[in-house]
Design a protein around this nucleic acid. Structure first.
Lengths: 141, 141
DNA sequence: TTAAACTTGACTATTTTACTATGGTATATA
DNA sequence: TATATACCATAGTAAAATAGTCAAGTTTAA
C-alpha cells in the first residue's frame, strides 16, 4: 500500500508555490529545480491541477502558476482528486451493488476496506496546504 | 493508493478460517472454493502466515490450517506484517537520516507522509479478526 | 498404499507507474 | 516584432510491481 508519485509530487509542487509565492507566478522550471521533479512530468500534473481550478496559469515570460485560493483553503483531498490519486482499498472482482465476486452478498472483509478508505480520506480532508508550510513543519524545500 | 491482493486475501482467508473452524483444520481447497482465490496463490500466502505463527498446519488427509490464537488476539497489523503488505507512503529518492533526494534536509512533505503512515497503521492495530466475523459485520462468505 | 494435503522455489504474463518525446500555442518583454 | 520563456496535449515506453502459474516434490490419515 503506497502513494504514487503523481499525488506526492502534486502536493510537493503546490507546497513549493505556497512557500515561494510573493504574489508572483511560480514557474514550473523553478519548481522542477527546487524539488527535483521532471519538468515534463510537472506539466502533466499541472494540466490537471489547472483543469480542477487548484491553480491558474500566467502565460508569457516570467509567467507560471498561482494558487486560486489561500493555502489554508486547499485541502489535500482536493489535490488528490484533481490528479486522480485514487484512494481505493476495495478491489473485489465483479463488484455489484449487492455482492462481490459474482456472489449474492458482499465479502466479509468489504466493510473493513470501506472503513479504511473513510479513515484515510478523513485524514486528507483535515489537512491543507497551509499546514505544510507553517510552524514546526517548516523546512527548506 | 491501494491494497494489494496479498494483504486482502490473507485477511479474507483467515476470516474464513475463523468463521468455519469448529475445532477442525480448514483446508486451503475449501477456502479457495468459498472465497474464489487461487489455490496455488493461497499456498504462497499461507506459507508466510505459518512462518509468522499466525496459523499452524495439520498435514495428511482432512488436514488444513488452524489459527494459533483466538480471532480477537490476531490484529490485522500482524497479518499484514506476516505477508509483507507494506504500508509505505514515503518514497523519497535517496532518503537518508537527515535529508531526501540528496539534500541536507527532509522534503517539506516528509512529515506529512509519516503522519499518514501512522494513521493507517493505527487503524490496523485496532482491528482484529474477531471484529470481522461478529455482530452486524457478519455476512455469508 | 494412495489420495488428500501441505511445501518450496522458480517462472511469467499483465498491469501499473513514472516518466520521456514530440510538436505544438501563447504572450511578456526587450 | 522578435524571441525567449512559458504553457498545452497526446502518444509512447522502459522498468517495476503485481498476481498469479508451474513443476516437483514431502507428509500422513484412512
Amino acid at each position: 500500500m503506497k502513494l504514487t508519485t503523481k499525488g506526492r509530487y502534486a502536493v510537493m509542487a503546490l507546497a513549493d508555490i505556497a512557500k515561494f509565492d510573493k504574489n508572483n507566478p511560480i514557474s514550473l522550471r523553478d519548481i522542477s529545480l527546487r524539488q527535483g521533479i521532471s519538468l515534463l512530468y510537472l506539466e502533466q500534473i499541472f494540466s490537471k491541477l489547472k483543469k480542477n481550478e487548484i491553480v491558474k496559469s500566467v502565460r508569457g515570460s516570467n509567467g507560471g502558476y498561482i494558487l486560486t485560493k489561500s493555502p489554508e483553503q486547499i485541502k489535500l483531498s482536493n489535490i488528490f482528486t484533481a490528479v486522480q490519486e485514487e484512494i481505493k482499498t476495495v478491489h473485489c472482482k465483479k463488484e455489484s451493488k449487492r455482492g462481490c465476486n459474482g456472489k449474492a452478498t458482499k465479502c466479509i472483509t468489504h466493510n473493513l476496506w470501506d472503513e479504511l478508505e473513510l479513515h484515510i480520506n478523513d485524514f486528507f480532508n483535515k489537512k491543507n496546504l497551509g499546514d505544510l508550510i507553517k510552524g514546526k513543519n517548516e523546512r527548506v524545500l
